[in-house]
Design a protein around this nucleic acid. Structure first.
Lengths: 310, 310
DNA sequence: AAATAATGTGCAAATATTGCATGTTGGAGC
DNA sequence: GCTCCAACATGCAATATTTGCACATTATTT
């Protein structure tokens, strides 16, 4: 198995044809065709369905597509790590943050640490809440930056982890200003169109437990779209698809320049806490330094979080 | 980056020389030497220190050794999955069990499911407790078989998971029979030699919290060896290194044929619960079937667990 | 039943890999 | 410091793989 092969397979999956994939891989179509044949020989199975043109991924390959993409990332990373030649051998650290924080608070934190300790190299990963904790448990990440509901627990027992509150944020309803004007959210006539989260992601949970119960008439809300990504939800709100509940820090720039209206005075909202998490135990010196750096960066998200670059 | 290359690097890491590694990789030393040079060219960094003979891994490569081994496993697995050609596309499931259960109860469970549903293919993974939960969170495993202390919680909040008690086991002290006879465990004269677990693994925790407090004189125990693996601990007890606390189900065969003596009448022990765990949410049909199969297999570990093959 | 677009194949040139024989080099022993 | 040996590198020729080009084949469209 080779990284090249995985990239070839993904190229076909993404372009939908050998010809286009060949272009992308900088090969003639014929050479590419035989490369695929070779891959199939080596793997020992037919990967593509040639009974139709253009070719089509076999089901068992499509199933592995995410895994293949994941392995491509890991292999590239490994190559980069091997090449890095240990120049900063003992001063690197993986920090994982929840997607919705990766574009708001986390960059600011990393920048802050960078100003204090130029010798520390931080690799930022972005993932959903459970993946973040999964990375922490498997020590693929040393520190997490995640949201949590004030007064609630993290997904992992506190006996395994140490956490630190960095600041506060709000989960607020927003919508495109024209759509806000056109509709009467206080009234009970029209159903409220909104952008939903799947209930198995963090903000889906927050919505179900904190927002839904506070809605005057929960039956009168109408999911118009669903996405697991907060950024996509924000985008849909801007497009006027419906109301989206998002972290205030994320919506702040859009609200400031008028692309979004804050509806938190008319619709329910709730508070969020931003916290840093690490495993209990003996931290490495770098980990301790970064942890302390983060500690010195505690801020009030409501005023400062949007200062993180987007 | 290629799987072959990773295997080459590991071969050098494990054998400590190009010559031996070449043999293991079925190549002449000269060909192997140039392969390594080629790998270094492609990666863009020197991987081995040739200033001494035999060659020596550079630090930044040694650091990545675990990651490389991990990637080798993932790539082999991917190849197998691609080759499996979807013959059993929708009827496979990953079950992860704590190391100490992988050799006792888990095989029996899998065998049991196999008799009911020949069409289901179960892939068994073995890992430590936190890795098991990490796999569950990242959906690399659908179901876990793990120990837990009666009345205690799993490492992950119960709001995310569903668990089911399969049976009971005991965490008991054992030692080689001759060593047992030679020493007076009731008396307070001699320090008690024992095999310790690191405190960051599950059984280390169990020992610290459940066994240590019950020892008459905790100062009088003397760690003679430390291992994270229960099986290694069992082995050391058989070699007479000291007392080892292990799950009764694991020690049962050795106790039965006289290689180990059960000291639970003279030294503290505690109960363990064996449970199955899965994520809350909509299970796939296969997952539901396996869960039900496991449910029908609830047993009393004290009498039946050792029936699992070793 | 063409016409067309997508993929496969024969062939020769270019590259890459290997084994064998042999050259170099670190380090252990004196 | 010298010698020798084991460990690694390299020259070379044989072999295997990969590629582009031109063209054949096959599915889809009209």
């Amino acid at each position: 198995m080779r990284l090249e092969w995985l990239e070839d397979i993904l190229a076909v999956a993404e372009t939908g044809s050998f010809g286009e994939a060949a272009q992308r891989r900088h090969l003639t179509q014929s050479a590419f065709s035989r490369r695929i044949q070779n891959i199939e020989d080596q793997v020992g199975a037919e990967l593509f369905d040639r009974s139709r043109k253009p070719v089509h991924l076999h089901d068992h390959v499509a199933e592995q597509r995410d895994q293949i993409a994941h392995l491509v990332r890991l292999l590239r990373q490994l190559q980069a790590d091997l090449r890095r030649s240990g120049r900063m051998a003992e001063t690197k650290l993986v920090l994982s943050s929840q997607h919705s924080l990766t574009t708001s608070l986390t960059p600011a934190i990393i920048r802050e640490i960078g100003t204090h300790r130029r010798d520390i190299f931080i690799r930022l990963r972005s993932a959903n809440l459970t993946d973040c904790f999964s990375q922490l448990l498997s020590r693929q990440a040393a520190i997490l930056i995640v949201y949590r509901l004030p007064g609630h627990q993290h997904p992992i027992l506190e006996t395994y982890i140490e956490s630190m509150t960095l600041g506060f944020d709000r989960f607020i309803p927003v919508i495109a200003p024209d759509a806000a004007a056109a509709s009467n959210f206080g009234g009970a006539d029209a159903a409220l169109p909104y952008v939903a989260y799947p209930s198995d992601v963090f903000f889906g949970n927050v919505f179900d437990r904190q927002i839904l119960p506070k809605l005057a008439d929960a039956g009168k809300i109408l999911p118009r779209a669903e996405t697991a990504l907060t950024l996509a939800s924000l985008e849909m709100a801007q497009m006027g698809i419906g109301v989206a509940w998002v972290p205030e820090s994320l919506a702040k720039p859009s609200i400031a320049d008028g692309r979004l209206a804050d509806l938190s005075d008319r619709l329910p909202e709730c508070n969020l806490e931003v916290s840093a998490v690490r495993l209990l135990g003996e931290p490495t010196p770098v980990e301790a330094a970064v942890w302390d750096g983060i500690a010195s960066y505690k801020i009030d998200a409501r005023s400062d979080m949007s200062s993180g670059s987007v």
